[in-house]
Nucleic acid binder design. Sequence first.
DNA 1: AGGCCATTGTTACCTAGACTCACAATGAAC
DNA 2: GTTCATTGTGAGTCTAGGTAACAATGGCCT
Lengths: 149, 149
Amino acid sequence: MTMPDPDGQLAEQLLRLTRRVHRIQKRHLQQRELGVTPAQSRLLRTLAHWGSPPRMADLAERLEVVPRAVTTLVDALEASGMVRRVPDPANRRVIRIELTDEGRSTLRELHAVRRSAAEEILAPLTGDQRETLGTLLDTLIDGAPAGRC
Amino acid sequence: MTMPDPDGQLAEQLLRLTRRVHRIQKRHLQQRELGVTPAQSRLLRTLAHWGSPPRMADLAERLEVVPRAVTTLVDALEASGMVRRVPDPANRRVIRIELTDEGRSTLRELHAVRRSAAEEILAPLTGDQRETLGTLLDTLIDGAPAGRC
DNA sequence: AGGCCATTGTTACCTAGACTCACAATGAAC
DNA sequence: GTTCATTGTGAGTCTAGGTAACAATGGCCT
């Protein structure tokens, strides 16, 4: 009476949930009409958690995407005044990305968006369950073999 | 000393993991060179779990996408001989989607792909943890308010 | 100094996956 | 039989990502 493929099922559930998370987040973002897409929102949050302005390459690594993808995101965010490209005097190849005041104020609104989206997604879970889930996800994310090249 | 936004963090982790799952699955699929994308693979699996051949609209609902998206997927799968469009004699508007023999054989290979991808993703977790995660994900997926409409 | 290679960001292009809108064909209901 | 709902699809858009080629820069090595 063992399940036929428990791990495969798990991956399936994860993917399914994934799609739902994405859709819900997108909807909540659109409702606020901040002109920010989910990926841009993620970049902004990443930026906020940084100490000093990171380089494009830093962002790419943190976001786990190729540098080229960061260029597009920063293009959009810069066009809407959320971030600024600042050349690094110490190394003329690198460009540092700074949050603008407008970016910071948008971030505060994004915080609320994320909260409401998270609330909708996590509604079926109790506080304890959320904590457990958080721990498991942490383990999954941190313990990853980082892509074995 | 409470966390600033635990639920938001959770959603963040979920999204991050999501991206990883997607990437890993895609890589594993490409390695096998089955000519099947992740979304197509999902449709095939959905099809296999169905009793009698479903309508396009059924698939759309089950996959949680708009019907138009199913058209594209079925186009591709039909072009590679995995499925067949069969008109429904009882209602000439509906088209039923049938798995072909080739689709069935591909599905067997996809099963292996999914297993290996799941293994890579879930490597950091013990058996017990996987079980717990499965339960939590079930709760999340089934308990969803289905888009409050 | 000069030459070779790695780093950094970007230009140009492609793909997957989803969405909206409009529409034609069909069925159902009044 | 006219009107309305269902069903699938054409046309077009959009987000998010990926490759490949490249120009500019920096580091290193002799």
